[in-house]
Design a binder for these strands. Structure first.
Length: 167
DNA sequence: CCCTGATTCGC
DNA sequence: GCGAATCAGG
């Protein structure tokens, strides 16, 4: 770029209009670096820089000018792959989530006893809670679970079936 | 990846 | 002096 008085005047004019350096460069057919470089040498009023330069002490840090080493991505440490989270099987809520068990009234309707504490009996609810005929299953529970085999199958949902996204 | 302006430094 | 390269924030 030949910086004669005319081109300098045009640069000053465009700079005073508040055009961006790239836009000035486009109109003058030069690069924005040429514009900003010349503007600096002309001591034109600086634009509000988008960069915070306060934290960069150019004076105090005389960097070795020769080798401009591009920082490669390969130098960054690889992130360790996250192990798969263990699948936790949770028993279904007692009443709310489970489908209402079909009430088949036993002939021995005399059994109105609730499971005692510590008894290995199934506590699957039968009937509407709060009503007179509400009771628990009271069949023998298995494996330390609170339900019998039949109701444990209803209460414990397989983890695969609980997923919400079809992979 | 686009934009911005500022700075550095080989030429 | 010039301006590409580079930096650095939006």
């Amino acid at each position: 770029m030949d910086w004669n008085s005319e081109s300098i005047d045009r640069l000053r004019a465009l700079w005073a209009e508040g055009l961006s350096t790239a836009e000035i460069g486009r109109r003058m057919g030069i690069s924005k670096n040429a514009v900003v470089g010349k503007a600096h040498r002309l001591n034109l009023p600086a634009r509000p820089s988008p960069i915070r330069r306060e934290a960069v002490p150019r004076v105090a840090v005389p960097r070795p000018a020769a080798p401009r080493i591009p920082l490669g991505r390969e130098a960054l440490p690889r992130e360790t792959p996250r192990p798969a989270a263990p699948v936790i099987r949770r028993p279904a809520p007692m009443v709310a989530a489970a489908p209402a068990p079909v009430v088949t009234p036993q002939p021995t309707a005399v059994v109105r006893s609730f499971p005692r504490a510590g008894a290995r009996t199934c506590c699957w609810p039968i009937g509407e809670p709060g009503t007179a005929d509400f009771r628990f299953c009271t069949a023998e529970s298995l494996g330390g679970k609170p339900y019998c085999a039949e109701h444990a199958a209803l209460a414990y949902v397989k983890a695969r079936d609980r997923r919400e996204d079809a992979a």
